[in-house]
């Protein structure tokens, strides 16, 4: 509670300073006042054009992100568990990982065109790695005692994977998911700034071209809200799914 209060006070002070600076500087086409920015945000939202773009962007980001998860978790489990998979598939992925995803955008456009496919593919590609790497780390950090328990009570590899590994890797997976959500957002902006005809990034690009700086700010704020919301949703999801390690002494 105290933290929330302090945060609000800090923000109020910052906005006041911004307002003061903008008024003194007096060049609204470079630095609009926060009041003007919020006015632009509200009117853009009210007119619906921001929401329409947001919907398009959200669709792309989610499609790419979910595609990444669906591929990365199994890949992380398989390479984390089986040495053969790690020496083959895992090695290839390790070599791809250091390549900056942004450098691949031109190639994606050449191969997949300017449509949705290249955008979703780029978001998926970039989001893949941190889910993959963290899942793999989770699998490798399974407590050997828990595996012994399953083995000594006659359970096979499938049961070890589904009843031990799957659970114990979850905290790692969520770390990867939250990191990847941020990466997905970065890629979303990038692919929408480069050769897109719609979406929030396109709106941002267009507003800049027409020197509508308050609109630029409103798009940035919406992007920020997306990232913030994604993190909150994932944290809530994580707390729900990992009930077993909740606060010590929650029950006494």
């Amino acid at each position: 509670m105290r933290r929330v209060r302090r945060t609000l006070i800090t923000l109020t002070v910052l906005f006041a300073l911004w307002q003061l600076a903008a008024v003194l500087y007096d060049k609204a086409y470079i630095l609009p006042t926060p009041v003007a920015v919020f006015a632009a945000l509200v009117s853009n939202l009210a007119e619906g054009k921001l929401l329409a773009q947001l919907q398009i962007s959200l669709g792309r980001a989610l499609a790419g992100y979910l595609l990444a998860i669906v591929l990365a978790i199994p890949a992380g489990v398989i390479t984390g568990w089986w040495k053969l998979a790690n020496d083959t598939l895992g090695s290839v992925l390790e070599l791809l990982r250091p390549v900056p995803a942004l450098a691949l955008i031109p190639l994606a456009i050449v191969w997949l065109g300017f449509g949705e496919a290249s955008k979703v593919a780029m978001i998926a590609y970039a989001s893949f790695f941190s889910v993959y790497v963290n899942t793999q780390a989770g699998v490798r950090n399974v407590d050997p005692l828990h595996i012994q328990v399953m083995r000594v009570y006659g359970r096979g590899t499938w049961d070890v994977l589904t009843k031990v590994v799957l659970y114990s890797m979850l905290p790692y997976v969520f770390t990867g998911l939250r990191y990847s959500a941020a990466v997905a957002l970065i890629l979303l902006v990038a692919v929408e700034l480069v050769g897109s005809q719609n979406g929030l990034g396109f709106f941002l690009f267009q507003s800049q071209a027409f020197l509508q700086v308050p609109d630029v700010f409103s798009a940035i704020l919406v992007f920020g809200a997306m990232g913030f919301a994604a993190n909150l949703i994932l944290l809530a999801f994580e707390r729900r799914m990992i009930r077993w390690r909740q606060e010590v002494g929650s029950d006494a």
Binding site: L145, H146, Q148, V149, R151, V152, Y153, G154, K163, V164, Y167, S168, I242, W244, R245
Partner: peptide, 19 residues
Amino acid sequence: PPGKDRGFVFQHAGLLPWF
């Protein structure tokens, strides 16, 4: 191999925390 003719009790209980 491990079998149901032997029960095993581990030093630190060895419970699976998520169950």
